[in-house]
């Protein structure tokens, strides 16, 4: 009996050495900032929240349903990662927050990433010192309506715009050139695409060049 079973056992052990093939994730877009240097070159600015600073603490103003939209945005981005690279949580005190989400128009600033969906718009202020390249949270996210609250499409717009802006706060500092991506400059889709996911994963497995100060 043992002799009959032995070949099958060996076959099982031989096949047990196989690994599944990891995806290439080549389909992604540029997420880093490129800053001209005094020497005439280009500095690549890459940022991802280090594991030691997670969960990311997010506070949202209690208007326009922003706390619900921010909670959904956290879940949306957490679901894009396979290995716990990003985790977020809502906090009740804005003083404790790494990201502050408020309603209203963004102030005029140089380093501001803006998005214009159909029914609402958003902007994220990246708190980066252009000289020292030190990032000092909190990020400020501004969500503003282009139509009255209750207008068809506004809720969906608030949801996708909050998720889009949180994507910037995660370290995706550029817009996707593809309208099928959540990080497109005028986002239409309600969820991250495979390209958004690939980009986020690459951002969190690439060396960062921006220092975090908390």
């Amino acid at each position: 009996m043992m002799r009959r079973l032995l070949p099958w056992m060996l076959l099982a052990l031989a096949t047990s050495c196989g690994d599944s093939a990891a995806p290439l994730r080549a389909d992604s877009y540029e997420w880093r900032l490129f800053e001209p240097t005094a020497e005439g070159g280009t500095d690549t600015l890459a940022f991802a929240w280090p594991g030691s600073s997670l969960p990311l603490r997010i506070w949202a103003q209690d208007t326009l349903g922003l706390p619900n939209h921010a909670t959904a945005a956290i879940q949306t981005w957490q679901a894009q990662f396979l290995y716990g690279e990003f985790r977020g949580e809502m906090v009740s005190d804005s003083l404790d927050a790494d990201v502050i989400v408020v309603a209203g128009q963004a102030p005029a600033k140089i380093r501001l990433l803006r998005s214009m969906a159909r029914e609402c718009e958003g902007a994220t202020d990246v708190p980066l010192d252009p000289v020292t390249l030190i990032l000092t949270p909190p990020f400020h996210v501004f969500i503003d309506l282009r139509f009255a609250e209750g207008t068809p499409g506004v809720e969906t717009c608030l949801n996708l715009t909050t998720a889009h802006e949180l994507g910037h706060a995660l370290g995706i500092f550029q817009h996707s050139p593809d309208p099928d991506d959540l990080m497109y400059s005028d986002p239409i889709v309600t969820a991250p695409s495979a390209r958004d996911r690939n980009t986020a994963e690459r951002a969190y497995h690439t060396p960062t060049t921006i220092q975090l100060s908390r």
Partner: peptide, 18 residues
């Protein structure tokens, strides 16, 4: 071991876990 999410994100083949 073939969790649904790994297939969804593009892993191919079967992972064997001794």
């Amino acid at each position: 071991l073939t969790p649904g999410q790994t297939t969804l994100v593009g892993f191919g083949g079967t992972q064997w876990v001794p």
